[in-house]
């Protein structure tokens, strides 16, 4: 691994491409078709973020609408030299945080992942261990999954968000910090706290 800090993604390094800049200008003039084209590359990511955070397809769909309508309405405040993905994720994060806080206030437990119509993607397909082959493993996995949801529900909305962005979206802590109006160090501390909480909540299972 190089000692020099590398940009996490191509987009982070490039800022806005020329084509995107043109779409932004057209969208700022009220061209909704240009706006829809502009967000095409990022809207699945926003939906995924909301789905994984809120574990409910309906809530995720609402977050999607709210995020992009807010984005459309505040396009005039988008600066040409900023990054469109970071900007959209920042709006999405705020909308999601509102949802998480509202939910916490209602003391409502999050919907379990199995209820959603979202498809769980087995990211780690290690062929040697196929869990479905062994019924005991299936049970153990289900138990672990339930406990994970409980443990995650125990995080603060902010910890949840940093964890989500780092673990499932591969964003670097530097970017996450910038997105949430905090330093890289603050994001790092937040992620660290989140993983420690998860570890201690699941200590007996691991």
């Amino acid at each position: 691994m190089a000692a020099e800090p590398e940009p996490a993604t191509v987009e982070e390094a490039q800022g806005v491409s020329r084509e995107e800049a043109e779409l932004v200008r057209a969208a700022q003039r009220g061209d909704t078709a240009a706006f829809e084209r502009l967000i095409r590359a990022y809207d699945r990511g926003v939906l995924r973020l909301a789905l994984n955070l809120l574990r409910s397809v309906e809530d995720a769909q609402e977050v999607y609408q709210e995020t992009f309508l807010r984005a459309y309405r505040s396009l005039s405040s988008f600066r040409a030299d900023s990054n469109i993905q970071t900007w959209l994720y920042r709006i999405a994060s705020n909308v999601c945080l509102d949802y998480l806080r509202k939910r916490k206030a209602r003391r409502e437990s999050p919907v379990s992942g199995e209820d959603g119509e979202g498809v769980p993607v087995p990211l780690l397909q290690v062929p040697e261990r196929r869990p479905e082959a062994d019924p005991e493993r299936v049970l153990a996995n289900r138990r672990l999954a339930e406990r994970l949801e409980q443990a995650l529900a125990g995080l603060t909305p902010r910890e949840r968000m940093v964890f989500e962005l780092r673990h499932y979206h591969g964003l670097r802590l530097r970017t996450i910090g910038a997105m949430m109006g905090a330093s890289e160090e603050a994001a790092k501390t937040c992620l660290y706290r989140a993983t420690q909480k998860l570890r201690s909540a699941l200590r007996d299972l691991l």
Partner: peptide, 14 residues
């Protein structure tokens, strides 16, 4: 284990 609980939005939802 955290990787395993990742949800991918269905194409129809998007």
């Amino acid at each position: 284990a955290l990787d395993q609980r990742r949800l991918e939005p269905a194409p129809e939802t998007l």
